[in-house]
Every structure is written in structure tokens, then in C-alpha cells.
Design a protein around this nucleic acid. Structure first.
Lengths: 215, 215
DNA sequence: CAACATTGTGAGCAATTATTCAGGTCCTGC
DNA sequence: GCAGGACCTGAATAATTGCTCACAATGTTG
């Protein structure tokens, strides 16, 4: 309740297989419960019940409710990051447009599995240093990778590749979110196409050769 | 008793000036309290205390805590809409680029006054029909206006103006949010410039010599 | 001023919920 | 097989908080 920030680390390091299993049960149960009931109504007792363990056991591994949510967020972030890494390891498509499209699809896919849980995580995860740090690190990695890509490609005509990379990464991330959140009101395919087109044209067409060229 | 879920309308229509004043006090107090303590810790008692009225009075005008937040959101939406309307009534700049820039600035300004409160509203406002309706209406209005603009301008070379307008409106809205949320980590001016450049290039450079051939 | 309506008061109720703890059960090493 | 630790249990607790209600104060109307 109050923002008394207790530690978020588990109280006990599991030494038996049983314990590790219990931790896992708690996490999956919490994911379901938070997704179904939201954060406030996703009580620790409900989580324990769903995990079919006692409430006491829950508090042996997580010092409070927030700690559970934080761990869920961390897992989600790491999954996203490793998915990106995986797709980067493979061979990139030839055209820049197809590369961008790949990024866009990856972002959408990463959020597609459980929009409800995603919402709870985004809204209620306490912005504890541990998390902020991780989020910022992941974003920086993505930006750095994108920037390298932009600099390696001759058809890219942007001056400030750092800012361009940030813009591209943010735009993809945010619009993917929006697409997931409001899937009905938008034609997903058209929107994806236009988004890809927007980013591609931005990157490949240098500063305007238009009449009023005064920076 | 009233039906299952409580209504969100005020219980009493004010007939004396005194009452209207009290309503106003409640709202401004709520805005401060929510911004400072967040939603959960922004208790109704704290709001009443800050408004210097009794908790009972608060519940004469708002049937529950959510109703207060909903009214705050409605006010925010309406303010944003009327700000947009105002800027549209004035004379538009000549170049498309400057028009886009105007939109971007308007979006940023609308969110600049109280980021904390904005966060609470975005995260905790119950998605009651009243709100969803209003949000969707405002978005549609903006999209419609933008679309008309795109179709009136000869230098705009996009095929599907409806989707393009949606993309432009969403992109501006979302990136403005992001800029407000993380003002330190980003050079605001550069980012704004690149965002404007991205949208302008997208709109003014026709479809690539590629497969997409849908009028 | 009297009768009535409107507005304001705040102690306390009812319900919820995160968390604890005293005491069990299970596992592992010797 | 037996000690000691790891693990689990769940009723009870302590604290919080949204909200009600019986009453008081203030305004309005005739």
C-alpha cells in the first residue's frame, strides 16, 4: 500500500527442486491472476490459491506483492530482448523496407501473447531502480543496433543517426502497443504497411530539396 | 438500492453557488492529490482534507472515487480538444512541414502541465463507456480533420488518406506522450525536428516503385 | 420569522487485504 | 533411522480505506 519500499529480493534461495517448482508456480499463477483480475483485485491470497500453495509459502519467496510483479516484468523484458537478439542473429532481408518490416512484426509479436497482463505490468509495476535500469539498457541496446544498421546502409540518408535510431525504435514500440491495445478499430495490415512505408521513406529520403531550404 | 454498479453521475445537482464552489474544490484537490500520491494512495479522505471540506460533502457530489477521476479525465480531454480547435481556427502556416510542426507542438503542450496527473489518469481511469466514447470521438475528429487537410494539399502523395491520417495522429500523440514521460533522456528539439521530418517525408514522397498498388 | 430545502460535518462501520507466525511435513546427510 | 534444516500451512492479525448516516449549519422562500 504505502510506498514503503522493502527489498524485492526473494527471502530464501531455494535449495531443493521442490522450492524452485513452487517459485515457478507462483509466477505463472500471478501472471494469470493479474491478467484476469487486474493488479488491485489480484490479491496475494488469490495468487496462492491459484498456485495451489499456501499464502505463507508465497511470502517465503517474495517479500511482498510488488516483488512478484517486478519479477514478471523482468522476465517479459528478457524474453523480448532475447527474441530480438535471435532475429538479429539470422540473416537480414535484402531491402531496408523488409528489415523494417521485420522489426515491426517482432515488436507486435512480443506483445501479442497477453495484452491484459501487459497492461497490468505497464501500469502497476513500481519503477524501482532495478527495473528502470533494465528497461533503459534494453532500449539502448536496440537503439545502438539500429544505429549501426543505419550507418552501414548506403541508401540511408539521415544526418543524425542517433536521433533517427531513437525515433525509429520508439515509433515501432509505441505503435505496436497501440495496435495491440485497440486491435478492432484499425485495419492491422494497412496500418503495418503504412508504418513501414513511413519509416522507410523517412530513412531513405534525405533532407528536403524543396524550395524553402533554410534550416 | 440502486442497480448493480454505481453510476458515475453526481448525486446532487448544485443549486447554490456554494455547492458549485465545493465541486470545484474537490476537483482541484483531487488533481493535486492524485498527482502527488498516485491513485491508490490518493484516498478520498485525503482529497477531502486537501479541499478543506468534510468527507461527507465529497460523497454528496461524487458517488465514488472513480467518478472523480473520470471527471478529471473528461475535463482534460475537452481542454485538449478545444485547444486543437482553437489552433485550427487560426490561419495555417504555408508549408506542410510547419503545419505538422504545429500539431506536434500542440500535442506536447497539452501534456506538459502535469505529467504526474496524466500518468495516473492514463493508468487508472476505469474504461467506462462514457470515457471510451469521448476518447474515440475526439480521435475521430482529429483524424477527419487531418484527412481533409491531406486531401486538400497537392504535395501530399499518399494513396490511402484515411490510414495515413490515423497513422499521423497516433504517431504524434504517442511520441508526445513519450517525450513528456522521459524528458531527460532525449534531446527534445532534435527529436521534434526528426519527428516532423519523418511525417513530412512520409506524406510528400509518393509510394515507392514497389508492389503496393491499391488506390 | 417560520418552514423548508440545500449544503456541510466527521466519527465510525464494514469490508478488504497484505502479511505474520507458530507449528507442522518433507527431504537430505550421516 | 534420526537429527536438523528446508519447505509448507492457513488461521489470525493489523492496518487501511471507501463510504454511510444522523445530525448541524446555512441559505431561500412565503
Amino acid at each position: 500500500m504505502t510506498s514503503g519500499h522493502r527489498g524485492l529480493q526473494p527471502r530464501k534461495q531455494p535449495r531443493q527442486a521442490r522450492a524452485e517448482l513452487t517459485r515457478q508456480r507462483i509466477l505463472t499463477a500471478a501472471a494469470h491472476v493479474f491478467a484476469e483480475h487486474g493488479y488491485a483485485a489480484g490479491t496475494t491470497n488469490r495468487i496462492a490459491e491459484r498456485a495451489r500453495i499456501s499464502i505463507g509459502s508465497l511470502y517465503q519467496y517474495y517479500p511482498n506483492k510488488d516483488a512478484i510483479l517486478v519479477e514478471l516484468v523482468i522476465r517479459h523484458l528478457d524474453e523480448g530482448a532475447s527474441a530480438v537478439a535471435r532475429s538479429q542473429d539470422g540473416e537480414l532481408p535484402d531491402s531496408l523496407e523488409e528489415i523494417i518490416r521485420m522489426f515491426v512484426r517482432a515488436a507486435i509479436d512480443n506483445h501479442l501473447d497477453d495484452p491484459q497482463l501487459l497492461r497490468v505490468m505497464a501500469e502497476h509495476a513500481p519503477l524501482v531502480p532495478e527495473l528502470l535500469q533494465r528497461i533503459s539498457r534494453h532500449e539502448q541496446e536496440r537503439v545502438a543496433y539500429t544505429r549501426e544498421l543505419l550507418e552501414r546502409r548506403p541508401e540511408v540518408k539521415v544526418g543524425d543517426t542517433e536521433t533517427a535510431a531513437r525515433l525509429v525504435v520508439s515509433t515501432i514500440e509505441l505503435l505496436a502497443h497501440k495496435l495491440i491495445a485497440a486491435p478492432d478499430s484499425i485495419d492491422l495490415h494497412r496500418f503495418e504497411n503504412e508504418l513501414v512505408a513511413m519509416l522507410t521513406r523517412y530513412l531513405t529520403h534525405g533532407a528536403e530539396p524543396s524550395d524553402n531550404a533554410q534550416p
